[in-house]
Computed example of a mutant assay.
Amino acid sequence: METIGNAIIFYGLKVVMAAVIFFVGKFIAGWLRGLVAGLMKKKDMDVAIQQFVSTLVYYALLTFVCIAALGQLGIQTASLVAVVGAAGLAVGLALQGSLANFAAGVLILIFRPFRVGDYVEVAGVGGTVSKILVFTTELNTPDNKRIVIPNGQVMSGTITNYSTHDTRRVDLVIGISYGDDIDKAKAVLREVVEADKRVLADPAPNIAVTQLADSSVNLIVRPWVATGDYWGVYWDLTEAIKKRFDKEEISIPFPQRDVHLYPTADNA
């Protein structure tokens, strides 16, 4: 009876300690899940990513708590840890593409290289961001196509965000004939640019000779505009410059080549 009593006390203490480890560990895991969710909410991250990450943290911690409780009961957990590790490895290998997209989605939501509504160029395509999801990013193209890009491809290449800043520079290259007056052409270009009320005064527009090309003298026209006015100014300035050059009799030459014929003895 004394032996039985000692065994009951011994194993009873183990069961009590295992229960304490389990319930305390479960409480801590729940608290950490709430903490992670709160931190992600402060970062204004997507609700789906908040729920997914916080739940993943909770069950990962709960798994270790269960293993620790079983170890307190005297159960050999080495084989159990090996099985859990092997299962995790198998799942990771099977879902490595999805996990890569998920990790990239988390990075996008944390570092915010772009937001919904920005016009971006990623993975070789351009469009307005309509959705940023955990595994994919969705773009709407200017011709109203929906493009779904895996987040792994988004983060593995260069991201060009055209909407980050409030202003953009319009870059035009205008060619004039070698026989035209450069100073007159520059003055006309400046008048056309300054006549457009959407062009910003600061920074000042830049108009200069950039190249002595084969068929023309090329001038750059670089005014600054609000980002939302970029394409409107680009198209309107191109048309206005052509019309004003026609009025001022400043030519925009076609590509041309001089051909010299030399007489020979056969056709002299």
Rank of each mutant, 00 (worst) to 15 (best):
D44Y: 11
R190G: 02
I110E: 07
V84S: 08
G117P: 04
T167H: 12
G232D: 15
P150C: 01
G5Q: 09
L70W: 05
D246C: 03
E239Q: 13
D266E: 14
V134P: 05
V199I: 12
I174Q: 07
G74I: 06
T141N: 02
Y162D: 09
T158A: 12
G34T: 03
K184S: 06
D118P: 04
D183M: 08
A104W: 07
A268G: 13
A19Y: 03
N206V: 14
Q76R: 09
I207P: 03
A78D: 12
A69N: 04
V47N: 06
A201S: 15
R257E: 12
L261T: 06
F27M: 07
Y162K: 07
I67H: 01
L70H: 05
T3Y: 03
N151P: 02
I220F: 14
G88M: 13
G34Q: 12
K197I: 15
L32I: 06
E194F: 07
A208F: 11
G232P: 01
S163R: 07
I75D: 05
A82Q: 11
D171S: 15
V91C: 10
V106R: 04
G5R: 05
F245A: 02
S163K: 08
G88N: 10
A94M: 12
A86M: 13
V259S: 09
L80Q: 04
G97K: 14
G12F: 01
V154F: 00
P203V: 09
A104V: 11
Y58V: 00
E191R: 14
T160P: 00
L139S: 03
A87E: 07
R115M: 11
S215V: 09
M40I: 03
S251Q: 13
F102R: 04
V91W: 15
E121W: 03
A104M: 11
I8S: 07
S54D: 07
Y262N: 06
D214I: 12
R168A: 13
G92V: 01
V120R: 10
L261G: 05
V225D: 01
E249Y: 08
V15Q: 00
P255C: 07
L189V: 09
D202K: 14
V125E: 06
R168E: 10
L133M: 05
V83W: 06
L89H: 02
P203W: 01
I21N: 03
R244K: 15
R146N: 09
R115P: 01
V125A: 06
V91F: 15
D196V: 00
L89A: 13
K131E: 14
F135S: 11
V193P: 00
R244P: 00
I108Y: 05
I132E: 02
I9A: 14
V225M: 03
T77R: 06
V188M: 06
I174V: 15
Y178K: 08
D166P: 05
T136C: 01
D183W: 08
A208G: 02
A208Q: 12
L200R: 03
L109Q: 15
L89G: 08
P223C: 11
G228N: 13
G30M: 10
V199G: 00
A201N: 14
A201H: 09
V16L: 14
D266R: 15
D44L: 10
V47A: 09
V193R: 00
I108N: 06
V134A: 14
W235N: 15
T77W: 02
A48V: 12
V233F: 02
V16P: 00
R198D: 10
D214L: 09
I207K: 05
V259A: 13
G179P: 00
V129Q: 01
S79V: 12
G179R: 12
V84G: 06
I75K: 01
I110F: 11
R198W: 04
